[in-house]
Design a binder for these strands. Sequence first.
DNA 1: TTGCTCGGTTAGTGAGCGTTAACCTCGTCA
DNA 2: TGACGAGGTTAACGCTCACTAACCGAGCAA
Lengths: 220, 220
Amino acid sequence: MSSRTDAPTRREQILGEAARLFAERGFHGVGVDEIGAAVGISGPGLYRHFPGKDAMLAELLVGISERLYTGGRRCLAESAEAGLAPGATLDALIDRHIDFALDDRALITLHDRELDRLRDSDRKLVRQLQRQYVELWVGVVREVHPGLPEKEARASVHAVFGLLNSTPHLSRPSALPDRATTAALLHRLARGAFAAAEGRGGADADGADGADGARGTAGA
Amino acid sequence: MSSRTDAPTRREQILGEAARLFAERGFHGVGVDEIGAAVGISGPGLYRHFPGKDAMLAELLVGISERLYTGGRRCLAESAEAGLAPGATLDALIDRHIDFALDDRALITLHDRELDRLRDSDRKLVRQLQRQYVELWVGVVREVHPGLPEKEARASVHAVFGLLNSTPHLSRPSALPDRATTAALLHRLARGAFAAAEGRGGADADGADGADGARGTAGA
DNA sequence: TTGCTCGGTTAGTGAGCGTTAACCTCGTCA
DNA sequence: TGACGAGGTTAACGCTCACTAACCGAGCAA
């Protein structure tokens, strides 16, 4: 159960420290002894909780992928229920992703850095969840920006993920404004990027979009 | 030397394959035997060209950092010489970075993934080059968008780097439109993000921007 | 009390890997 | 012709590291 912010169980404690360490120095760069030491037990004691080092990484990556995807689905469901406009739904998606990116920096880092260290089956699962999450965004983005061809929408979503996930890469986070300001800034950047995506599609045209309502990126 | 597209020297060949392999499976994830095999020699033969595995990574990371920074400086110099507007300078910076991101995906990946595997001195050097490169962007961005506070400008630049560098993270690049379309799209996304950055700065106010003048993302 | 499980411990093992050693074979140049 | 250096080779060493074996003490149920 864990009423809410219970004392974290040993497993969770281990996963948390492992995430931090993996993000800092890479999966292969961290030894089991270090992970153990980080939670106050030492070395092979971990094997009472996990079958192996790989299993920790797998659980972390599958976990974050699932949380992202189900979080996204919940956004969509709530938006639909509340009868929100596509633009507001996109705002909700963006905010939720920003929360992940700012709160679980280590996991976000791992998520696109250590994926290939997984067993085939786990990697397939994570990839599938990622794909579904992307498609979920693509759908909303294309509702907000109907002029955007699907391929470009997908590429834009990937790019915006790169943008939103960029904060963990900062060497020292002190360079950032406070959390609220950063979140608001990232939100504006993401919306601005999407708005600019349908500028004029280059060669493969679709022409008609004219002055579109949704935003108003000043000049755009 | 090397008139232009000469047969690459052994060293260059090794560096190229090492970059590819490091990007695919991580620095610790690839053995020297594999790197050797990739260029047709085997294992310790590499030590005729490099003092060690670390040295290869160091040369790759220092190299790409230098190329990015000097490339950026050249952009600025040429723009100044031609008397271009700040907007056009920013366009040039963006295009140059996109060329890097699309042509040297492996290096871009390494650049923000394996930095901590370097010896202290090398890491410091790379970090310094990165910082200088960022500051160079920040200067131009603030010329184009004077309403943007410095901290937010810097964060925006980092975020846009994340955006521009996102393509390597795509599992299979076939999902992307052709190169020209992708480049144009990334360019629009980046400009759109910057344009949206100075929306209204949130809490920490600088107050006066209201309807602010300096805009005109459109034409640029 | 006895005995079992849970969560630790330390010591050890075996594989993988970076690196070195020793040796070989060309082409080049005096 | 003969020395030599550049660029390979294979064998071996030594370290790191994930994982296993064997043991142990506390809590707790019968």
